[in-house]
Design a protein around this nucleic acid. Sequence first.
DNA 1: ATGAAAACGAAAATGGTTATCATTAGTGCA
DNA 2: TGCACTAATGATAACCATTTTCGTTTTCAT
Lengths: 141, 141
Amino acid sequence: MDPLAHRTRQRRAVFRALSGRRGFVSAHDLYDAMRSAGDHIGLATVYRSLHALVASGHAETFHDDTGVQLFCVLAPAGRGYRLACRVCHRRVPIEVAPVESWAADLAADHEFTDVHLVFELTGLCSACSSPQPEAAASGDG
Amino acid sequence: MDPLAHRTRQRRAVFRALSGRRGFVSAHDLYDAMRSAGDHIGLATVYRSLHALVASGHAETFHDDTGVQLFCVLAPAGRGYRLACRVCHRRVPIEVAPVESWAADLAADHEFTDVHLVFELTGLCSACSSPQPEAAASGDG
DNA sequence: ATGAAAACGAAAATGGTTATCATTAGTGCA
DNA sequence: TGCACTAATGATAACCATTTTCGTTTTCAT
């Protein structure tokens, strides 16, 4: 099934908006972005479309530390992973094969099947980290 | 630091109640159980105590498929990463150091700082994947 | 026992997600 | 192309887990 073959304009728009994102987004963020971009769409429709995309296997989702559900276009093996700057959104393609094989290996080792790997690596690129004030740099842990 | 050394009766009670549980519990479930058992305690206090336990490293928490936060006394491995079964929530502590160092290495290689690694590995454990009836407990996927 | 500070509990507030329902858009068929 | 039927939409209310509020109670140190 082709996600772009979805019946409605809105669902296609959601898929396109999600595809244009690097990394995971919350439904609300995507909604805000789409409205800002001029799309006329409702929050409920964004949620429905996102869930439809997940159900049909075109997107994946998980809940972050605060319980918010995040979405991302499904990354086929070997594609979609990247190192992204949280400030300027610069993306660096990375070779994630070792991690994937490590994960597959580990899962098989514990007799787990149907393994899902959610993986996202973000940071501040050299350009964005240089002039950053150091005030709130304290990471916990 | 001994979790039983917490200042208040309530916090001790929450720790004891959580310790008596085999798997993960939601704050509300624990609250209900404690009230049923005769404890006089408020919901907010259960949440506060649970979070304090997590913060002090005596419990761990994650969000299930529906976004509900579940708690459990800390597994021996300590770190937040694990391989988890999406059906029965059985967890296998995993050695994630190689991935962390790989990520740190990669980030440094690209001059990224303040790196965030979102990493989640889930699957179906041997018990849950073998005799899956496709009608009843079908995990959509 | 006494005072200051922290924790408590009940209830209200918060906020992300889902349900409702009148309306609109999309699909199949003549 | 036009019509009828069905599913999708969108504004808003409802939901519900979690957090905050705030007056009261408990704890810790003296």
